[in-house]
Simulated assay, not measured.
Amino acid sequence: MINIDSRSSKPIYEQIIERIKENIIKGILKPGDKLPSVRELASAITINPNTISKAYNELERMKAIEVIRGKGTFVSENFKPVINEEKLMTIKEHMKEIIIEAHYIGVNKDKLIDILNEIYSEF
């Protein structure tokens, strides 16, 4: 379910958040699905439970998941995306970096759009 790259410069809790969000977008996790408990997931991927808890707390803050006391953690059934201007600016900055790198390896705008469409269709 979740693969962590221990060599990545990205913090582990952020990788967990990304993988869970990706699994939701791809339909691997559906609204109402129960997520493993903090301890179960920590044991399965051999990560400190505090790291899992931090990721779950952030996902709950985003309203992507919800914790029901005594029952567990579930994919939110009422999630409604809301544009976050700060996050949008971060995405634009990342896209700018990608465009610059693409230019320097000879990838033109049309090819870049094809790549974006290819990746988008995976979701």
Score class of each variant (00 low, 15 high):
58 E>K: 11
32 G>E: 02
39 R>I: 00
29 L>D: 04
40 E>K: 03
70 G>T: 02
88 L>F: 13
91 I>K: 09
48 N>R: 01
30 K>A: 02
98 I>P: 01
30 K>S: 06
99 I>D: 09
64 A>I: 13
85 E>H: 13
36 P>F: 04
35 L>V: 05
85 E>G: 03
79 F>N: 04
97 E>T: 05
48 N>L: 06
34 K>L: 09
52 I>Q: 00
73 T>G: 04
99 I>N: 09
39 R>Q: 01
54 K>D: 12
73 T>P: 04
68 I>W: 09
98 I>D: 05
72 G>K: 13
91 I>C: 05
54 K>F: 12
67 V>F: 13
79 F>E: 13
32 G>I: 05
51 T>V: 15
99 I>V: 15
45 I>G: 03
44 A>Q: 07
84 N>P: 10
35 L>M: 02
99 I>F: 12
47 I>P: 05
92 K>Q: 13
41 L>A: 09
29 L>S: 02
81 P>I: 10
67 V>L: 08
35 L>T: 02
39 R>N: 11
58 E>D: 11
55 A>S: 10
68 I>P: 04
37 S>N: 06
92 K>P: 08
81 P>V: 06
83 I>R: 15
61 R>M: 12
29 L>A: 02
51 T>K: 12
92 K>W: 12
51 T>D: 06
68 I>A: 06
48 N>E: 11
61 R>F: 07
54 K>P: 02
77 E>F: 05
76 S>M: 06
37 S>D: 04
42 A>T: 00
92 K>V: 13
77 E>D: 11
87 K>H: 12
84 N>R: 11
52 I>S: 00
52 I>D: 01
43 S>I: 09
35 L>F: 03
52 I>G: 01
47 I>H: 03
40 E>M: 01
57 N>L: 10
98 I>R: 11
99 I>T: 13
35 L>Q: 00
44 A>F: 03
30 K>R: 08
89 M>F: 13
41 L>N: 03
94 H>I: 14
30 K>C: 07
77 E>K: 05
88 L>C: 13
92 K>I: 14
42 A>L: 04
57 N>K: 05
98 I>G: 03
29 L>G: 00
75 V>C: 07
75 V>T: 12
87 K>G: 10
61 R>G: 07
88 L>R: 14
85 E>K: 11
85 E>W: 07
94 H>K: 12
98 I>Y: 15
32 G>N: 01
65 I>V: 06
